[in-house]
Amino acid sequence: MSDIPTMPSIAKVIPRQCFTRQTSKSLAYLFRSILIQVIVVAIGLTIPYTPSMSLVWIIYALVSGTTAMGFWVIAHECGHGAFSNNRRLETVIGYFLHTILLVPYFSWQRSHSVHHRFTNHITEGETHVPLVIGGNGISEQAGGEEEIAFSRSIGKVAFGAMQLLMHLIIGWPAYLLAGKTGGPKYGMSNHFWPREPFSKKLWPSTWSKKVWKSDCGIAVVLIILFNWAWSFGIASVLTMYVGPLLVVNCWLVVYTWLHHTDSDVPHLGEEDFSFMRGAFLSIDRPYGKILDFLHHHIGSTHVIHHIAPTIPHYHAIEATRAIKKAFPKVYLFNPTPIHKALWSVASNCVAVKADGQSSRYLWEKNLN
């Protein structure tokens, strides 16, 4: 693993100020996202709840969900300790932001920390862990042969479309409720219920209590939504909240999927895996100025985020430039436009297979 930089060598090339957190600056970015969302919601309140305005409401959901994704990113920074040195303030903000998006904050914080520790690990990874050709279902994700056969029987276009639908619409709730795409080590986990009949492996020690604390916030939000629907009608909730939330969830899946999946990016077994090697298997992509602005550069600075997740997003651009210059052979950036990259991953990345020379697992593509 001599080709992978060590943390001390990385710390030498990243400017020291990149590791500092400024509460006032983080709050300023939060208020910016709030201001943008207030404007979008104010516009939404002027749209009538009539069938003839259905297309307008779809457009509204796309816009409002895209702007609201900024809250998800800030809550994500809170979960990593990148928002502020004031841990109580950071936890309150992260808990509130994630809870209003129906994300169980502490449950996610735990599973996401596992994802960071074992990025692209074939058995202990925690998001978008692929099916394995020859996997036994205990130490690896079995079912790769069946998935390859199925993808080739229906063709690349149909398989890609199905993958997009399953990932973007069903993927996030399926992960929260049943641990789908998580590694086999943790079994069928549930982010709301840390005990049987679900696996308890993801919630050691006091984390199970924190899951219940997350649930309390989610319950409050659900009660508010019920009262909202009761007072103002279900159409109001569907158009102003549910539609945009579905778009937020889609953005979340797009980012996590494309951060850690590409046809030439391997997954690793125990012999080849290390934290730093996994971190450098993250992929930066070109999301453009508007999305980078709204989403605080989460997609274009993700490699450095995996290397040093406590670096706040407003220093991540500078830190990314530093590692890109210092370690060009291992830094991954794919310039493919996002819509093309998403289709390529959905239609080509079916299952992985051990390469036979090491514990690297390479993608077996859909050749149809």
Rank of each mutant, 00 (worst) to 15 (best):
G179V: 14
G217A: 01
W228G: 05
W212V: 14
F198W: 06
I224R: 00
I234K: 06
S263P: 00
T206K: 12
W207T: 15
P204F: 04
L165F: 14
M162S: 12
G233P: 05
Y186S: 12
P184D: 01
L246W: 08
K200N: 07
F159N: 14
K213W: 11
W212K: 06
H260V: 11
H259N: 09
I170C: 11
L252H: 02
F192N: 04
I170Y: 06
S231L: 15
S199W: 04
K185Q: 05
L176F: 15
F159I: 15
N227R: 05
I223E: 00
S214V: 06
G233L: 08
H259T: 12
K213P: 02
W203D: 09
K210M: 15
Y175G: 12
A161H: 02
A161K: 05
N190C: 10
C250Y: 03
L246C: 15
W257A: 10
L168S: 08
W228K: 04
I218K: 01
R195M: 09
G171I: 04
T256S: 07
G179A: 13
I169G: 04
S205V: 12
V247M: 08
I218T: 04
I223R: 00
W207S: 11
L165S: 11
F198G: 05
N190V: 09
K180D: 08
S205P: 03
S236Q: 09
G217R: 00
K185I: 05
W172I: 15
A235E: 12
G160I: 12
K185F: 06
V242S: 03
W203K: 08
A178W: 05
W193G: 02
L258W: 01
V221D: 00
A229L: 02
I224W: 00
M188R: 10
I170E: 03
S189F: 14
I224F: 02
T181Q: 08
Y175N: 12
S208T: 09
W207M: 13
L258T: 08
F192Y: 14
G243V: 09
V157S: 09
L238I: 14
H167D: 14
D264N: 11
W193A: 04
Y175E: 09
D264S: 11
L176Y: 09
K185N: 04
N190M: 08
C250W: 06
K180G: 05
S199H: 05
I218A: 01
K201T: 10
I223S: 02
K185V: 12
